[in-house]
Computed example of a mutant assay.
Amino acid sequence: MEQMLNMLPPEMQVLMKQMSLKDFPQNPTSKSYKGHNFIPMFSPEVAEYAYDKMSVKEGDVYIVSYPKTGTNWTYEIIRQMLYRDPMSEELSKRIPLQLGVIEMEPCEKFALLDKLPLQRRIMGSHLPAELVNVDRITKANAKIVYVYRNPKDQIVSWLKFASKLPVVNEEPMKSMLNSGWDKYFEHVVAGDFPMNMKPGQWYPDHILGWYKHRDNKNVHFACFEEMKQDLPREIKKLADFLDVSLSNDEVDKITEACTFANMKKNIATDGSNRSKILDINMRKGEVGGWKNYFTVAQSERVDTLFKEKLAETDIRFTY
């Protein structure tokens, strides 16, 4: 790790170390960009910079998703695929979280990304399609993986995740997260939460925006529940899409390393700041936990809302 850091310009070494020490912002506020209300902790200014100025290299991989739909799991699977030599593997584990998320501060991180001695870079984002320069990414022959998950588990997972963060002490999040399940649910389906979407929009609108790019050969849709059902099969699909050659033994190794239990164990022993943040992100990774929270009426309401919104798509969910 030190050897690779020493390859960076001195000012970039300092920035890398500074980001590695940072936790989530302690006084987050929601801001707006092009009519989209951003999740607290994310920066409209950085998103705008990324759209206009972020360099895109052939082979880069962008993992895009709505929050709490399997982003970190997919990131780890792809990280295991791309970084198999010891030095790249070690560096990739030490990359600060904010360096790997497009819309997180600071803007200076993009210059650092350009200097990292990695042949292929992995970036994540929760941005809607209209705030990502998809044309520039795909014309550079970079890849976009869109991850989706059944909305009922997403709704529960977002509540559990957001309640652990500083956003719970800030409005409008504070009231919406602390008023009980029923009121929280109503805020979600009304599109009240600042989730990088326009007011009144939420998860189905995020899916619809990205679905417009479904036929782009450089865009791949990955389903959380399908990965849970048959991870080796989905790893092979991802490998084919990313032009990565994997033997059956390598698929088996990635499958084993990326079980939820092993990922949690590795995070617990890693010790990096990134791992501390990922530990907050990773809860249970289950399918069907929503049944402990939803009433029958709430479940049917989500079914209806998604059926109406996604009627012209082939997106189907496993609950």
Rank of each mutant, 00 (worst) to 15 (best):
T69K: 10
R316G: 04
N178R: 08
E90T: 07
N6A: 15
E250G: 02
F24W: 10
G180M: 09
H220A: 08
S43Q: 04
N266K: 14
Q229N: 13
P166F: 13
K217R: 14
K265L: 13
S175C: 09
V244N: 02
T74S: 11
K265V: 10
D85H: 07
S65T: 13
Q154I: 13
K236D: 07
L246T: 00
L97G: 01
I280V: 15
K228S: 02
A257V: 11
S299A: 15
V188L: 05
I102T: 07
L159C: 04
T269S: 15
I254W: 05
H213K: 13
E186R: 10
F294C: 01
E89K: 15
A297E: 11
N281S: 15
T313D: 04
S247V: 09
R120A: 04
M104W: 08
V145L: 09
E105M: 13
D85G: 03
K291N: 11
L99N: 08
K109T: 03
N262S: 13
F294Y: 12
F161Q: 02
K115S: 08
P232H: 07
L131W: 04
D230I: 05
D60V: 01
L5S: 02
Y75N: 00
A222Y: 03
W290M: 06
M263R: 04
C258L: 09
G285C: 07
Q13V: 01
L21T: 04
L159I: 09
N273W: 10
K309Q: 11
H213S: 06
L246S: 01
L118K: 09
H126T: 07
K68N: 04
I280A: 06
D114V: 09
D23C: 13
A142P: 01
P25H: 09
I63H: 00
M104A: 10
R94D: 11
L165F: 11
A129Q: 03
H206G: 05
T295M: 12
M12Q: 11
P172T: 06
D60H: 00
V302A: 05
Y49F: 15
N216D: 12
F161S: 00
S55T: 15
K31R: 13
P44I: 12
V244S: 04
D279E: 15
L242V: 06
M87E: 15
Y75S: 02
K17T: 13
Y51P: 00
A311G: 09
A142K: 00
N196I: 11
A222D: 01
E58I: 07
L159P: 00
C223K: 08
P25A: 08
Q3F: 08
T269M: 14
D252Y: 10
V134S: 01
L82H: 01
E89T: 05
L118H: 04
L118C: 02
P172W: 08
L91M: 11
G288C: 06
D303N: 14
A257L: 12
E226A: 15
P96Q: 10
G35M: 06
F38R: 05
E186G: 02
I144W: 02
F306P: 01
M176Y: 03
P172F: 10
L159A: 09
S92N: 04
G70K: 10
M54Q: 02
V296K: 10
M41A: 08
G289Y: 09
H36Y: 08
A239R: 05
D153F: 07
K68Y: 13
D230V: 04
R316V: 07
K139A: 14
V287N: 10
L305E: 08
L112A: 03
N6F: 14
L116R: 04
N292A: 14
K143V: 06
Q13R: 10
G180V: 05
F317C: 03
E234S: 11
Q13L: 02
